[in-house]
Design a protein around this nucleic acid. Structure first.
Lengths: 217, 217
DNA sequence: AGACAATTATTGTCCGACAACCGGAGTGTG
DNA sequence: CACACTCCGGTTGTCGGACAATAATTGTCT
């Protein structure tokens, strides 16, 4: 018996948006690069209107920016933007950590960390990056609020966009994992203030690290 | 000299989306009501593709929900959704209040409150509601983070949607204003914990009030 | 009544068209 | 040479129409 849910029920627009999203995350398209409707339509073999709809959803996600009458370009993030993203993440994740340090079930966080550690050990960059982001998202998820998680996902996506344009390898994956493990331990020990301080320290360090790499690119 | 920025540079799509948004906030369209592309196109005198684009932006804002192959309906908020919205606002506004109680410039907050009080005194519901929402947004704005403000705006819009379907009049506008004034005073006094407690109390009360009215509608 | 077929309404996607608009290349003028 | 103006090609914004795919509804048969 075939799993009927497995058949592709997505719309063409969704698939085009998905393909573009992958290209953006993979760094195939550099920030500032214009996305021409006709060439994309020809490239994907779809109608221009379909491409327009796909671009609209991506612009809703902030991955591309629409300039009226001039088209759509891959969103360029300034140093200021990156600072904002990390500050916003700090707000959301702090709330999550507070929940985590005061009773919420930490299983998903631990699971993400385990995957992260494993991938870092095996030097699998793709999986490691994914698990790393998943770890942070799972912090927000501790609040059990789908809207906040959605907001965090948008921030994460924007960040991935910035990272895609620079070198991806993290030299210090080990120490990174240790950082996250420390945070989880503090949450488990039920010490909110220490856990929050650790989160803030970690995010600030990450912010400067990302900023350096972006401006240096 | 004419203000050149005053000339209308908006696209047809923007205007259609704006018109629909107004209708949604005004309660002209009830939650669950389907929005047919052809009738809207005829009604506005625009092409169907233009209506589709407008609906896409609204669905990005969460005001309408798209069901594949079945169209778009005005988003219906469950009791659970309303709880989530208020919880999410609590997270964002708490961060703002914390900033406000520790140094940020409270002028915009005070300005919104003044407008609110004035409108409540004059029994101007429309202005009062707007100023009230502005007050809460200005709390988030204390963080100086455009992304968080944008997130708060989306939450506010969703809430307006829920409120549009029920009676809008607030019988106790005076005590509402007093509530907000108290919060501002606490922030000014530089007492974060008390201010945060007051915010939480206020939002929780508002949540049950809104929930009651929505489920009772 | 319930399973099944036929009908209809609506969306999803495509195509082609054209005006409006933008940026740049060329042109003229002081 | 600097500046303003005009023209032009490429692109977007919007339109109208078309048709297949899908879902909802109605009608039919057992």
């Amino acid at each position: 018996m075939v799993d009927l849910r497995a058949i592709d029920r997505s719309s063409t627009t969704d698939r085009v948006a998905g393909a573009l999203r992958e290209m953006l995350f993979a760094g195939d398209l550099s920030p500032g690069e214009p996305l021409r409707e006709v060439s994309l339509a020809e490239g994907f073999g779809v109608a221009r209107s379909t491409v327009r709809e796909a671009l609209q959803v991506l612009s809703g996600e902030g991955l591309v920016t629409r300039y009226p009458n001039r088209g759509v370009v891959v969103t360029e993030l300034s140093e200021h933007d990156i600072g904002e993203i990390f500050e916003a993440r700090l707000v959301l994740e702090s709330a999550g950590v507070r929940a985590g340090a005061t009773g919420a079930d930490l299983t998903p966080v631990a699971a993400a960390l385990a995957t992260y550690a494993e991938a870092a050990q095996a030097d699998d960059q793709v999986v490691a990056t994914h698990a790393h982001l998943e770890f942070h998202t799972s912090l927000v998820a501790l609040l059990g609020n789908a809207r906040l998680v959605a907001g965090a996902d948008v921030l994460t996506a924007d960040l991935r966009l910035a990272l895609a344009s620079v070198e991806r390898a993290r030299r210090n994956a080990r120490s990174q994992v240790a950082d996250h493990r420390r945070l989880l331990t503090l949450m488990r020990s039920g010490d909110p203030d220490s856990a929050l301080a650790e989160l803030e320290r970690h995010l600030r360090a990450a912010a400067v690290s990302v900023t350096e790499r972006v401006v240096g690119a």
